[in-house]
Amino acid sequence: MKKILQIFFNGLIKENPVLIMMIGLCPFLACSTTANDAIGMGIAATFVLTCSNIIISVFRKIIPNNIRIPVFIVIIATFTTIVDYLIKAYFPSLSESLGVFIPLIVVNCIILARAEAFASKNNVLYSLIDGLGMGAGFFIAIAVLGIIRQIFGSGTIFNSKEFLQNPAVIMILPPGGFLAAGLVITLVKYIENKFNKRQKVISNLPSLCEGCVLKSKCVGNIKLKG
């Protein structure tokens, strides 16, 4: 149980795919012009990530090592197409606004990275939890960015009326995506640094660690010889 929670929060916070590991930035920036699009993209990517993690983990012992990448891509592409058809059939307006970015989930590197780094080495339950955790991390990041960009860029939130008279149009243009993403990542890094500082005081680092580059990352875990 403890391991499951650890894996989940690892994806959600500690190794958040976009905010900490900086992968999957393309959909993160491109699909966050409105909160609705961002949430739709977050859910679609989470679904594909979780399903492909499960399937890859089930067949991880059968898949030969040499052709693992083509097999992963076929599995991911299958789930992406499933999502594409379902969205087209049941949420036509969402499919219109997300457009080409739903088929492009195939090349979202979060999904391939998790298949390669986690699902092909761990059992089904852990892979499921990892998919959900990483998906939740991506979902929260893109939803926050989408809400920020929609409020400042179009002066609306979800489907409400305009409440800002002169919104800053740059926020829904590509440069605004980078600006908002930079601000969000700065905030996350600030919080992370504060958290690490507090941890450092508790762990009582040996005096040799003073001035080491990896100080904040290793927190005295590497045992010193001699």
Binding site: P70, V74, I82, K88
Partner: peptide, 30 residues
């Protein structure tokens, strides 16, 4: 290697074709 990739592709194609025939009328209706 050949067999695994072949069967993965076959299963994927079959499941997608089922889903396609199921969702096609709905998509066209939309």
């Amino acid at each position: 290697m050949i067999l695994v990739l072949f069967f993965v592709c076959i299963i994927s194609a079959i499941s997608l074709s089922f889903l396609y025939t199921y969702t096609k009328p709905k998509i066209e209706k939309n």
